[in-house]
Each structure stands twice: as structure tokens, then as C-alpha cells.
Nucleic acid binder design. Structure first.
Lengths: 202, 202
DNA sequence: CTTGCATATGAACAGTACGTCCATATTCTA
DNA sequence: TAGAATATGGACGTACTGTTCATATGCAAG
């Protein structure tokens, strides 16, 4: 009897839909809006409209548009989380940082990442999520690779590996977020050489 | 509570007040709100109410709350814009970066600066203003000091001074904005040594 | 002193978004 | 088959933006 437009695909009107289906539709719509129009456009209203979901539902599952944006972005771009060890530290660092720069510049990650980091400065929940799901894991990965090199005698015993990581990635973030200065992958080798050998005469 | 006393002091009701007087009141109120409650609370509505000004006036003078916040902050904390040269590059860098960290951590600049950089990621006008009035001048100052050292033979001829600056300040911004990791002035000497001598064995 | 311009003011309006509540419809599960 | 879980549309109140308008007042030129 219930000619309900079919559950799949159409607009099912009122009533329950599978939660996973709704979540997926919401995350897809949110990701698209984030990439196409930026974080400003990603409001609960917009996402609900475009996902064919109810705003009430979004409020139930996500505490804020920022949190939804972060989850949508991570669900989409699952960043490569490995750090190959070829034995050549310099080459490995250049490869990793180069991939980061290309991800930012050629795969369109620069705007969403900038905006998410930016919004995190005003949203403690988003800040925690972003640091824990994004910043920290990447830092740990790099740290581990540096630790291996340090044990192999390729880095000084008293080197502060956190500082090395901060200097490598932080330099890029500095240009991207604070200075708004253009850069591309060509800075990476120089950056790595500076981190390894410093700017003072040898 | 609004007595319509004459023009000076009281609440003058309608009509013109000197523009400079209104601007000063607005910037004062905006600065206080920014420091006490953060950038979220700094809306045209709030500032207009607290400054005893009309919202219409704020729209006339500032394009957005972010722009007002930036101007209010710079008007208040006029950061020290000199970079002493004692001849000892390492000591000068430690002094400068140490002052920066203390400014952030002990003078309450961390939250407003983080929030302004954050908001700049979503507001191109604010981003430009912030980079031009804040980031770039500081970088130029540091670059100039490094250039002197380079001419004196304290840095390699082929050293990339922009990279050195990015590695020093960027490392701190990285911890503050991306990792949300605590830090204090004690990292500064190590940071400078890494920038000067690198992490590889000498 | 008069006149006219510049400017601040209050008020109102539409638009958008948030956050919350409700009754209802539907699906899932026991 | 019955009840729990959950999505839905709708409504409400609040807050902020961005704009327009008429009005009041300071300032400066004549």
C-alpha cells in the first residue's frame, strides 16, 4: 500500500531513513561544498538542503558546522599516512615534504586546510579534532623516521626531533597561513638542507 | 541612562559627533572585547552598543568585524619593531624570538593573534592586511639582521634567508596554530641552534 | 551670522543562520 | 506484531548582517 516513492534515491518525505545513508549523503554534500565554495558556505542549512536531509538531524550528529566540515574533509581526502624509509634521509624528507606541497598546491588542499586550521582558532572542539586527527599523527610519523635516522647516526644524538619537524612543516605553514606568500615544491630541497646542515658556515 | 547632555561627554543622542572621537571610542571598545572575550564576541552589534556608537557608522568605516578587530589590535599593541644588532647573531636571534614567545605567552597576545590569523584564512581582506602590517614587516626586519650577519661571514653565502626566517618563526606558529602544543621560551635557544647548525652531525 | 555640507544617529526591513522544540512517519529490532 | 529508534517538516525565538531612510547636529565657507 505504501507507495512511498521508494526508499532509495527519491525524496522519502518524512520518517526514518537509515542513519548510515543519511550520514553518507551529508558528508558527501559537505565535502563538495567545502571544496567548491569554501568553509563559509558550509552551513547546516546549506548542507541539509543539498543532502536532502533535515537540519534537525545535522544538529543531532554534529556539534557545529566546523566539526562537520572537518569530518567531511578527512572522510574524503585520506592523506597518505606512511613515510617510506629508503635509507636516504634527505631524499625521504624531500619526497615527503614534496608530496605535502603538491597535495596543497595541485590537489586543491590548500584552501580547505587553511580554512580548517583557521576556523580551529575560533572553535576549540575543531582545534582538538584537527590537531589529534591531522597534525599530531603526521608529526609522529615524521618523528619516527627521524628517530631511525638518528639511531643510524645520520642525525646528532642531541638533536631535538620535534624541533626539526616543526622547522620543516612549520616553515611551509608559515608561508601559507601567516605570510600568504606563494611557494611551490622547489623550496623543499633547500628547506631540507637547511634543517640538516643549518645556515652557519660548516 | 542616556542623558542628552550637550555634545561633550554625555550621550549626544542623534546628530554628528567628531569622527575622530567616535573612531577612538569604537577602537577602544573593540580592543577590549577582543582581549577579554575573543574574536567571536566582536560583532558590529556588540561594539556599537559598547562604544555608544551607531551600527550604521561602523559599517561606514570598516568593511567587516575582522577588519575592525585587526585595526583595534594593532592600535593597541604596537609591537616592538626593531631588531638590535649586538654583533652576536645567536644571542640576537634568541632575544628576538624570546621576546616574541613572551609576548604571546605572558602578555596575552596568543589568543588574539591566533584568532586573527585564523579569521584571516576566511577573510581575504583581513589576510592581506595582516600579512602586510604584521607578518611581512617582521620578516623583513629579521631578514635584514640575517643579511648583515651573512655579509659578516656568519652565515653561508648560499643560505636562503627567507627559509631561515620561516624555520624560526614558522616552528613556533606551527606549534601554536596547527599542533596546539604547549611551548615556552625554553625552546628558543635550541630552535636557534638548529637553524644555525642543523640536525646532522657536523 | 547664515548657509550648506558632512556625518552620526535611530529606526526599520529583509535575509541568513543558529539552536531548540514538537508531532508525525517510518524503519529497525526484539 | 509491538515498541524502540530515528529522520522528517515545521515552527519559534535569538543574533548578526547589510541596507535604506529621515533627522539631528557639528563644522566651515561665505
Amino acid at each position: 500500500m505504501s507507495e512511498n516513492e521508494t526508499a532509495t534515491g527519491g525524496r522519502p518525505g518524512r520518517g526514518r531513513r537509515p542513519a548510515t545513508e543519511v550520514r553518507a549523503a551529508v558528508l558527501t554534500a559537505a565535502g563538495r561544498i567545502l571544496l567548491d565554495e569554501g568553509l563559509q558556505a558550509l552551513t547546516f542549512d546549506r548542507v541539509a538542503r543539498e543532502a536532502g536531509a533535515s537540519r534537525t538531524t545535522l544538529h543531532k550528529w554534529w556539534p557545529s558546522p566546523g566539526a562537520l566540515a572537518a569530518e567531511a574533509y578527512f572522510a574524503r581526502s585520506r592523506p597518505v599516512l606512511d613515510f617510506p624509509d629508503t635509507g636516504d634521509l634527505r631524499a625521504d624528507l624531500i619526497a615527503q615534504l614534496g608530496a605535502f606541497v603538491r597535495w596543497l598546491k595541485e590537489e586543491g588542499a590548500e584552501r580547505p586546510v587553511s580554512q580548517l586550521v583557521g576556523a580551529a582558532q575560533l572553535d576549540p572542539g575543531l582545534a582538538r579534532a584537527f590537531a589529534e586527527e591531522y597534525g599530531r599523527p603526521r608529526r609522529e610519523l615524521a618523528r619516527a623516521r627521524l628517530r631511525t635516522a638518528q639511531r643510524a647516526g645520520l642525525l646528532r644524538e642531541d638533536a631535538d626531533l620535534d624541533i626539526v619537524v616543526d622547522q620543516l612543516w612549520g616553515a611551509l605553514y608559515h608561508r601559507m597561513l601567516v605570510l600568504k606568500a606563494p611557494f611551490d615544491a622547489s623550496v623543499v630541497p633547500r628547506l631540507v638542507d637547511h634543517a640538516l646542515h643549518g645556515a652557519a658556515p660548516r
